[in-house]
Nucleic acid binder design. Structure first.
Lengths: 226, 226
DNA sequence: TTAATTTGTAACAAAATTGTAACATTTGAA
DNA sequence: TTCAAATGTTACAATTTTGTTACAAATTAA
């Protein structure tokens, strides 16, 4: 996933946390610690989404938001408002300030991520959603997470790439050579049997109890999802 | 098989022939008779493959091709170039214009079909199925599965290859020597009688109850599907 | 740095496949 | 009908392939 996100927030700790995590997830991020700077930087940066603190040293989040909506070139910019608990929550909810969503501090990064995705998806459908699905399995390439029926499955890096590879063509049988070529970095030499071990590890993680086997062994040919 | 194919070609007779036959084969087809229209229509139509005439009234095929390769959202579109005989064949071959394959007119529809399949398989393995069918039997080479009337039949590797071999020419009678050559890896020596045993195993798996015999013994000659 | 995780491989276990021999049955020509 | 040749069938040991585990080396995180 790509996308540019701008943050206007005066608490450095929050900026740091959010910015770091968003960048890890493939976003390009920039930020300001007050409203006036923020408005200027914003126009240079041309973000796809704005994270906006409700309370800022100079301007309030609502004022910034109105300002943005006036400018024709930014009046569609999606905005997620960040508020401290008890900070006039109800007002914000009822407010028709053009905010797309809001989030109450303290929040987990996962919550934030979910909101960001939802808002981006609404405003710009084809920049988001990079999920691979098969049966009850879902692999989120952006967040590098895997779920089976909403239950998260933790995978090591190689297992993740392996599953990702299978999911691009589920049901298709891949030989060990094909798997090696596609899943391992070029010019590394690993034994073909190594794949078997990784398949075993992937199976162990992915085959939750009460769930049917997902990986099929095709003797003398390779493996596939099923 | 599904897939969307766009044709840019100024000879109506060719368009008609190709379009009709492709549609009969399950493709969704659209076309233009000149380059400029073609480029516009193309983007709306979002094809999986482009058939492109080398000589067009306005733009040349090469120009169109370059145009396509520039556009990031289409730079992976597979292209098959159609050329009249003698029309600078060599140039085209040597040309690094990003063409995936080319075909010289006049061509048979089967030739075209083969190229299309090959190119699609390369660029997007998923959209092309590669199934062999005979009677109520279906063998899926990609997924390595065999069905008889939707009921899956499990086969060992050799039985699979054996059936695959018969299905490429059903009804034809193959001698044990021919079978050996084609189904067994080169330079292995197995008794001719071994084939009988594998035929027996294949029969056992394939001949579900209430189904007619599929493998015919031709005394002193060999076996065939029937 | 240390600790934790991940990775590749070897070694062994388990399972599936394979080829062949031995015997049974069928076929078709004499 | 008889009988030899061809094919069907079965069982089984050898081989191949895959599953599993353990562990040291390499990588990454803390």
């Amino acid at each position: 996933m790509n996308g540019k996100i701008f943050i206007i927030e005066d608490e450095p700790s929050i900026i740091q946390l959010v910015q770091h995590n968003l960048e890890k997830n493939g976003f390009i991020v920039s930020s300001s610690v007050n409203g006036n700077d923020g408005l200027k930087e914003l126009k240079k940066f041309q973000p796809d989404l704005l994270l906006l603190d409700w309370m800022l040293p100079d301007l309030s989040g609502v004022e910034i938001c109105k300002n943005i909506r006036k400018d024709t070139s930014y009046n569609n910019l999606p905005v997620i408002m960040l508020t401290a608990k008890g900070e006039e929550e109800d007002k914000i909810k009822g407010l028709d300030s053009g905010v797309d969503d809001y989030l109450t501090k303290p929040f987990s990064f996962n919550e934030l991520m979910a909101r960001i995705k939802a808002v981006l998806r609404r405003s710009n459908p084809n920049t988001v959603s990079d999920n691979l699905k098969f049966d009850d399995l879902m692999l989120d390439r952006i967040e590098k997470r895997v779920f089976r029926d909403d239950q998260e499955i933790k995978l090591g890096p190689t297992e993740f790439r392996l599953l990702e590879f299978f999911l691009t063509n589920p049901k298709r049988v891949y030989s060990r050579d094909q798997i090696l070529e596609s899943v391992w970095p070029n010019n590394v030499n690993v034994e073909s049997r190594t794949i078997d071990v990784h398949i075993r590890r992937l199976r162990q993680s992915v085959n939750l109890k009460n769930k049917k086997e997902l990986i099929r062994t095709v003797r003398s040919s390779g493996y596939s999802l099923i």
